[in-house]
């Protein structure tokens, strides 16, 4: 068992301190109450401020609990905000790959499509923003599952095709491979003849807030050996990194 991380324990103490009493404290009061050097207290408070857990009152300069703490239980990033921030990177991905692009997030135990760019061939296509996809059978969904912190089982794994990962063990192995590689794919796992590639979008602090991916006919998405084409994987990962950078995440 590794030892206690001191700065996390101290940060928690600061939050407890702000949650009690008058609700607003100056830096010196915080340092004194916890018997910390002022510089140490300042560093901790600033970091808590950066993640939104603490706010500083503009006039008095005193600190209080931040709004982000109140929303801890709900969604971290507004889905419409995610679309608005990624639109300039999703378009070039569609243009470069020649395939349709989708961005998804997990909603309960399904993938919610929050953005969709048509395949750039001007054929008739329907916008499927708002549609729900099964996470275990799509590249977007598997990438999201791979980085989901929630433990427990996967629920019912419906076999859509012969290649769907319908056993929890096979799926868990695939998710661990995705974490290893930093991207994921589905090859005829949802629809025969269709394949997809996806990579995680990271927000502030590295938290995965969504996934971006392409999908299309298996013969275009995959090479002669039935593996996702390297150039397409590169395009998808670059787009994911670009959106992540825009969101303040480091993007891997």
């Amino acid at each position: 068992m590794p030892g206690q991380v001191q700065s996390i324990a101290r940060a928690a103490a600061i939050l407890r301190l702000l949650a009690g009493g008058s609700g607003r404290l100056g830096l010196l009061e915080i340092a004194r109450a916890l018997d910390l050097p002022k510089g140490t207290a300042h560093g901790l408070v600033r970091t808590l401020q950066d993640v939104g857990f603490v706010e500083q009152d503009k006039t008095s300069g005193k600190y209080q609990l931040g709004a982000a703490l109140l929303h801890l239980g709900t969604s971290y990033l507004d889905v419409n905000e995610l679309r608005s921030r990624s639109i300039n990177w999703a378009d070039p991905l569609a243009a470069r790959s020649g395939e349709a692009v989708r961005i998804g997030t997990l909603l309960d135990s399904e993938v919610l499509v929050v953005h969709h760019v048509f395949r750039p061939d001007d054929t008739l296509q329907t916008l499927d923003v708002g549609a729900l996809l099964p996470p275990h059978a799509t590249a977007l969904g598997k990438v999201l599952l791979a980085y989901e912190a929630r433990g427990g089982g996967f629920g019912e794994l419906v076999p859509y095709t012969r290649r769907t990962l319908a056993s929890p063990r096979a799926l868990a192995r695939a998710l661990s491979a995705i974490r290893e590689a930093g991207w994921g794919s589905d090859i005829e796992e949802m629809t025969v003849g269709e394949a997809g590639i996806a990579a995680p979008i990271r927000g502030y602090g590295g938290l995965v807030v969504g996934a971006i991916g392409i999908s299309g006919p298996v013969e275009r998405v995959c090479d002669a050996h039935g593996q996702p084409r390297v150039t397409l994987v590169t395009h998808v990962r670059e787009a994911a990194r670009a959106v992540s950078r825009d969101l303040g995440g480091r993007g891997q």
Partner: peptide, 13 residues
Amino acid sequence: EGLRRNWHRAAQW
């Protein structure tokens, strides 16, 4: 015409 061929639909409502 060459420019028109560069134009692609990204979304339609």
